[in-house]
């Protein structure tokens, strides 16, 4: 006799909580074979607004945490993700129609990506920062600091878990808070990932995930004055030039789409959402 399964309700992840869309709307998520998988929340512009508020609130705590602490939290995410490996393998397999092996490879790579970025948290400043030998009696140091609130359009239509992790993790390394729009077609692994994040010591609001229409939500984030940067990794199919133009109003840092399903692990990705701060101080014994 087979047991009747208990399906999960997939909601948004905002400020550490799992609200439904304030619009009350959901959309149907189908598996690769056309089966109904779940109803995902369809985030509205107000959900996007709330997510930005939550992210802004989280910035000072997360960026003010020690780099060692951030690294440990990100590593903790990897640990918990690894612990729920089977669930994620099932989820991406059902959603994306992958072979078991490819699904496992994606989840493993997602775990490893967290580990890789976790290790950068207390090293990036050393690699990207500089002691500057200025021609005068000054202590002069340049260090990267987080840009602030980063809005991310996750890669769409493939590798839903890994695609999201590969753009969210690098933004978190230096202390940014993220509002991410998940893969519209395959949003379930993203919401499951937020359950991992919610139990991983990541402070509330540091990552916020919205599911629904990327084309509908992205413009609100692109034009939002309290968003500091825009990662258009998954926006290639959207009117991303318009998003970039909207972002210009408050001179957001914009990373245009590069056509990859999975962002390459790189220091450039960490650095893209940092600001270099240079501090001068006079130096004298007298």
């Amino acid at each position: 006799m087979t047991r009747l399964a208990v399906p999960k309700t997939y909601k948004l992840f905002i400020g550490g909580a799992f609200p439904r869309s304030e619009s009350g709307r959901t959309y149907e998520v189908l598996g690769a074979n056309g089966d109904f998988l779940a109803n995902a929340a369809k985030a509205s512009r107000k959900d996007a607004r709330d997510a930005v508020v939550a992210a802004r609130k989280a910035v000072s705590g997360w960026s003010g945490a020690t780099a060692y602490n951030r690294g440990q939290v990100l590593y903790r995410v990897a640990e918990l993700l690894e612990g729920r490996r089977a669930q994620f393998v099932d989820e991406v397999q059902a959603s994306e129609g992958l072979s078991r092996r490819d699904a496992e490879a994606q989840v493993d790579e997602a775990v490893d990506t967290w580990v890789w970025y976790a290790g950068w948290a207390d090293k990036f400043v050393q690699v990207a920062g500089n002691a500057n030998p200025v021609a005068g009696p000054y202590f002069n140091l340049s260090v990267p600091e987080p840009t602030g609130v980063v809005a991310v359009v996750a890669p769409q239509g493939a590798l839903s878990l890994l695609g999201l992790v590969a753009v969210v993790a690098p933004a978190l390394v230096t202390g940014n808070a993220v509002v991410a729009i998940a893969d519209e077609r395959h949003p379930l692994s993203a919401i499951s990932l937020t359950e991992v994040l919610a139990t991983s010591d990541l402070p509330a609001g540091v990552v916020n995930v919205l599911t629904g229409s990327a084309a509908g939500i992205a413009p609100w984030l692109a034009s939002h004055a309290d968003v500091n940067a825009l990662d258009l990794a998954g926006a290639a199919e959207l009117d991303w030039v318009d998003l970039q133009i909207a972002a210009a109003d408050t001179l957001k840092r914009v990373l245009p789409p590069d056509g990859r399903d999975v962002a390459t692990r790189s220091l450039e990705r960490i650095g893209a959402f940092t600001e270099t701060k240079t501090v001068w101080h006079t130096k004298s014994m007298l």
């Binding site: 005068g136 009696p137 000054y138 006079t282 130096k283 004298s284 014994m285 007298l286």
Partner: peptide
């Protein structure tokens, strides 16, 4: 009193 006087930044003074 003496210790309460404002400090001097040597570089700025010079």
């Amino acid at each position: 009193f003496a210790l309460g006087l404002p400090g001097v930044d040597a570089i700025g003074l010079e």
